[in-house]
Amino acid sequence: MSVQIIADSACDLPDSLIHDYGIDRVSLTVHLDDKDYLDAKTIDSKEVYDAMRAGKAPKTSQVSPQAFKELFESYAKAGQPCVYLAFSSELSGTYQTAVMMKQEVEEEYPDLNLHIVDTHCASLGYGLVVLRAAQLAQENASLEDIMEMAAYHKDHMEHIFTVDDLEYLKRGGRVSKAAAFVGTMLKIKPLLHVEDGKLIPLEKIRGTKKVLSRMVEVMEERADDVSHQTIAISHGDDLERAEQLAALIQEAFQPKDILINPVGSSIGAHSGPGTIALFFLNAPYK
Rank of each mutant, 00 (worst) to 15 (best):
D145Y: 03
L199H: 02
A277W: 00
D44A: 05
P262G: 12
E139A: 15
D15W: 00
A51E: 04
E217G: 04
D8T: 09
L212R: 00
H153Q: 14
G55P: 12
V117L: 15
D15Y: 00
D155G: 02
K46T: 10
S123H: 14
M149P: 01
G264R: 08
K177T: 14
A247V: 05
F181T: 03
E104F: 12
L112W: 12
T29E: 15
S265A: 15
A98K: 07
G197P: 12
Q96G: 10
R222M: 08
F280V: 06
M147W: 01
S213V: 11
T119F: 13
T275C: 13
L239H: 07
A179W: 00
A86L: 06
G55I: 14
I231Q: 11
D50M: 12
H115Y: 13
V83D: 11
D238L: 03
T162S: 14
G274K: 01
S142F: 09
A134P: 11
A57G: 02
P273C: 10
K256G: 09
A151L: 06
E90N: 13
K35F: 11
R53D: 11
L71R: 15
N261C: 03
S88P: 05
V63Q: 09
H115D: 14
K286F: 00
L124C: 08
L202Q: 09
Q135D: 03
A86E: 08
H193W: 06
V30L: 15
Q135P: 07
D225R: 09
P273T: 11
L131V: 05
A54E: 13
R53E: 13
E90V: 05
S92H: 04
T275W: 08
L259D: 07
P110E: 04
F279H: 06
S88K: 02
L71G: 07
V194G: 03
D196L: 06
H31W: 05
R174M: 04
G173N: 11
T94N: 09
T184F: 05
Y168E: 03
T42E: 13
T97V: 14
S9N: 12
L186G: 08
F87A: 14
Q135H: 07
I200K: 05
V211Q: 00
E106S: 11
K189E: 02
D118V: 13
P284N: 09
A133N: 05
R25G: 06
A223I: 01
T29H: 13
L186K: 11
D12P: 06
H228P: 05
A134R: 11
L259W: 08
D34H: 11
E243C: 03
H159K: 06
H235C: 04
K177P: 07
V83P: 10
E73M: 07
S9H: 12
I18Y: 01
Y49N: 10
Q103H: 08
S92W: 08
Q229Y: 14
L245S: 03
G79S: 01
E158W: 00
K77V: 15
I276N: 00
L199I: 15
L199Q: 01
S213G: 10
I200R: 02
L248Q: 13
E240K: 05
Q250K: 07
Y152Q: 13
D225K: 11
G172T: 13
E90I: 03
K256C: 11
M101D: 14
P110F: 03
C121M: 04
Q254L: 15
S271W: 03
K256N: 15
M101C: 14
A223D: 01
K154T: 13
L124H: 04
I188S: 03
G183S: 11
D225A: 13
V63Y: 12
Y84D: 04
L245G: 01
I188L: 12
